[in-house]
Design a protein around this nucleic acid. Structure first.
Length: 270
DNA sequence: AAATTCTCCTGAAGGC
DNA sequence: TGCCTTCAGGAGAATT
C-alpha cells in the first residue's frame, strides 16, 4: 500500500516525464472515488502546463499553470506513465493525456482521491490542518514530546495522527516503534523525552531507508513494470506475527489498536 | 476536548 | 471446485 516513501518515489519518477508538458485532456472513466472527481476538472486543466510537483504527507500535488491537481492514492491507488492509446483495464479510472504519453490513475478499492483547486493547495480543507513532515527539522523530540506528555492515547495511535505528523501509516508506525524499542500500546504521556528522541530518529531512519530503496527501482517504477521498491526493505515486525524476532528470537505478538493490526516484540519493546 | 468507532471498497486468503 | 466469510487498510466523519 502506498505510504509516504512510495508517494515520494512516484513523485520523483513521474516528474521528469510531465514537467513542462501540456495537458491535452483528461479521460475519466469512473468518477466515484473517495470523493467524486470534480466535473469541471477537465475543462479547467486542459491546455495547462505542469510547473512543479510536491508531496505533502501522502498527498501528491501537481502544480499547473493556473491550478493544482491533488492526488491521494488511498490504499490501492497507483499512478504511472503509459504510452498513448495503451488499452485500459479494470480500475484504470483516469488518464491524464499529455503531449507525450499519459499519466494513468488506477485504484481497485477507490479509497483514493483526484481533486483540483485553483487556490493555494496548502489551504485546501484536506491539507490545511496537517501536522509536520516527518523528515523535516520541525519533527523533533521537543515537538513530539509537546504532544505525548499530555495525551493518553497509545503511542502508535498518536504516531499515526496526521494532525501531529503526516505520512506515517500502519507499516512504518510499527517498524519505527520496534526500532525505538517502545511498546505500541505505551500510553503517550508515559514516554520520556529521551524516548521521544529515539522515536523521532527511528521514524526518520525507517522512512529514509524506504525512500532510498524506492529510488533504486525508480526506473522500473516509471515503466510500470516490477514492484514498488520499498518492499525491498526488510520489515522487522509488520506482517510477521507469531514469527521469531530478528533480534532476540522471541515470538512476535499481534494486538489490535484502533482496529489496526499491530505487531511487536514483547522483549525488545517492553 | 479527547478518544474511539464507523465508513467507504475490492481482492486475497481461508474454511468447509 | 466453488461459495461463503473474514480480513486488510487511509483517513475523514461520526459518535461516545
Amino acid at each position: 500500500m502506498p505510504e509516504l516513501p512510495e508517494v515520494e518515489t512516484i513523485k520523483r519518477g513521474i516528474l521528469p516525464h510531465i514537467i513542462g508538458r501540456t495537458l491535452q485532456c483528461v479521460k475519466v472513466r469512473r468518477r466515484d472515488l473517495r470523493w467524486p472527481i470534480p466535473t469541471r476538472l477537465n475543462n479547467e486543466m486542459m491546455g495547462q502546463t505542469v510547473q512543479s510537483a510536491e508531496r505533502r504527507g501522502k498527498y501528491l500535488l501537481l502544480y499547473f499553470t493556473r491550478g493544482c491537481l491533488i492526488i491521494h492514492l488511498g490504499m490501492s491507488g497507483r499512478l504511472y506513465r503509459v504510452e498513448h492509446n495503451t488499452p485500459y483495464q479494470t480500475h484504470d479510472h483516469v488518464d491524464f493525456i499529455f503531449s507525450e504519453g499519459s499519466l494513468r490513475y488506477h485504484d481497485p478499492r477507490r479509497f483514493g482521491a483526484v481533486l483540483w483547486t485553483t487556490e493555494d493547495p496548502q489551504q485546501h480543507p484536506l491539507l490545511c490542518h496537517l501536522g509536520v513532515e516527518p523528515l523535516s527539522a520541525e519533527f523533533n523530540a521537543a515537538y513530539l514530546y509537546g504532544y505525548t506528555h499530555r495525551l493518553a492515547t497509545p503511542i502508535k495511535t498518536l504516531l499515526m495522527n496526521h494532525k501531529i505528523v503526516v505520512g506515517v501509516g500502519n507499516i512504518y508506525a510499527a517498524e519505527s516503534l520496534f526500532l525505538a524499542g517502545i511498546h505500541p500500546q505505551c500510553v503517550s504521556r508515559q514516554l520520556t523525552a529521551a524516548q521521544c528522541q529515539l522515536l523521532v530518529k527511528a521514524v526518520k531512519q525507517v522512512l529514509n531507508a524506504a525512500i532510498e530503496a524506492g529510488g533504486t527501482t525508480l526506473k522500473d517504477f516509471c515503466n510500470g513494470e516490477g514492484k514498488p521498491g520499498y518492499f525491498q526493505v526488510k520489515l522487522q515486525v509488520y506482517g510477521r506475527e507469531n514469527q521469531p524476532c530478528f533480534k532476540c528470537q522471541t515470538k512476535l505478538q499481534k494486538i489490535i489498536l484502533q482496529q489496526r493490526t499491530t505487531v511487536f516484540c514483547p522483549t525488545c519493546q517492553p
